[in-house]
Simulated scan of single mutants.
Amino acid sequence: MSFTTTIKEEILALPDRHPAELAALIKLSGSLGLSRAGLTLSVSTENAKVARFIYEFLLEWFDIRSDIRHHQKTNLRKNRVYTVFMEHGVKDLLDILGLSPAFFEQETGLPVSIMDHDNAARAYLRGAFLASGSMRDPDSGQYQLEIASVYVDHAQDLRQLMQDFLLDAKVLERKRGAITYIQRAEDLMDFLIIIGALGAMEQLGEIKLMRETRNDLNRANNAETANIARTVKASMKTINNISKIIDHVGLETLSPELQEVARSRIAHPEYSLQELADSLSTPLTKSGLNHRLRKLNKIAEEIPE
């Protein structure tokens, strides 16, 4: 199951409902028609559970009986499309939901009643996500939530609605409409809190934490590997110089302190400077050990080839 589906199913299971949810679904997925009985309204979705949600909402809140119809898409995806169809009480429903201007006067933005009330705004965002929202699977490492709108004005109002909740929302225009989107993981988590999808928010937080922990471990491992490589490289340079001293003048020509350092370095090429300093009969500081290693290197460099 996709993460988008996880969020939508959690929204559908919430106990509290608000008319603004239905308003968003109709605004984004609804279309008007005419029949012998008069005005009709169709709300389409590819999610059977969302269709059932709309059907039950209309019946329980507005005592409107509707039909659920379906057909198969003929494009490559061939998804099944569900349509909740109403042919009674359509005009009254649009008036109650504040959608009459949208359908009869071509007002493409959000109703002021939604923009100015916190609970209505949260509910509208829930409905908008149910209608045309999606979120990338956070396991992919890319965070993005988007809601598609037919009209740019509506996408811009959605952006403002999200920004009112301090989310860093943006709008991207496309050939067919526009999308309102957010990309920061923290904003995605806040959005899920705003719409009441707390389970999905916790899941996203866990995935984000695991990815960050894994990245931190990888960085630490890479840094440790680089440090080991540098240590080995420096160690081999010194060992080669010590071998040169042994071959040309002998270790016995060195002071006892330098002889001990030379022998310890050859015996333990994998030791870090601190480990090498601690291995001596009289432990040294890293600075003191470095001083002796530099002396050994200098002696080797002064030996004629």
Rank of each mutant, 00 (worst) to 15 (best):
L217K: 11
V43Y: 05
I182H: 05
K237Y: 07
F104E: 12
S255C: 07
R17Y: 06
Q259N: 04
V50I: 14
D67S: 09
N227W: 08
R136I: 11
Y124H: 04
P304D: 10
L93H: 05
A169P: 10
L125H: 01
D95W: 09
D67W: 09
K298H: 14
D190Q: 14
V50W: 01
L276D: 04
D118F: 04
P269F: 07
R122F: 10
A229Y: 02
K73V: 00
M86Q: 09
Y82H: 12
D187I: 07
M1W: 07
A185H: 03
R80Q: 12
V232L: 14
R126G: 05
H117Y: 12
K237W: 09
L25I: 07
Q259F: 06
A13H: 08
G98T: 07
A23F: 06
Y181A: 01
L172D: 12
Y55N: 15
Q142S: 11
S66E: 02
N222Q: 15
T108Y: 12
A24R: 00
T253H: 11
V249I: 15
H117N: 15
N227V: 00
L125M: 14
V171M: 08
L25N: 02
G199M: 09
A102M: 11
H18R: 00
K295W: 02
A148V: 02
L14F: 03
A185M: 02
D95M: 10
S134E: 14
L145N: 01
Q72F: 05
H248T: 13
D278Q: 12
M162L: 15
H291R: 14
F62L: 00
S243Q: 14
A102D: 10
Q259P: 04
A223T: 08
S235N: 13
R219C: 00
E260G: 05
I228T: 13
A102C: 09
S29Y: 02
I239R: 06
E107W: 11
F57H: 09
T83I: 14
E257M: 00
L25D: 03
R214Y: 07
D216T: 01
I26L: 07
Q156F: 06
H117M: 02
V150L: 13
R69L: 15
L14A: 02
S264C: 12
N290G: 15
F191A: 03
V249Y: 05
Q144G: 01
L296P: 04
E301R: 12
L39E: 13
A102P: 00
S235Y: 04
A148F: 08
T74H: 04
L284S: 05
F53N: 04
R69W: 12
I194F: 04
S255M: 08
L130K: 06
D16F: 06
F165Q: 10
K8R: 15
M1P: 11
V261K: 03
S287W: 09
L167N: 08
S2L: 08
L167I: 08
I228E: 11
E56K: 09
A131V: 05
E56T: 13
M135H: 02
E301P: 00
R136L: 15
N222M: 15
F129Q: 05
H117V: 05
G199E: 09
H88I: 09
E224P: 00
L158G: 04
S66D: 06
L130Y: 07
R219N: 11
S243I: 01
L289D: 08
M1V: 09
G288H: 06
Q160K: 11
T108H: 12
T238Q: 03
A131R: 07
L167V: 03
G133N: 08
T45H: 04
E46C: 13
H154D: 15
I26Y: 10
K27W: 06
Q106N: 14
T213V: 07
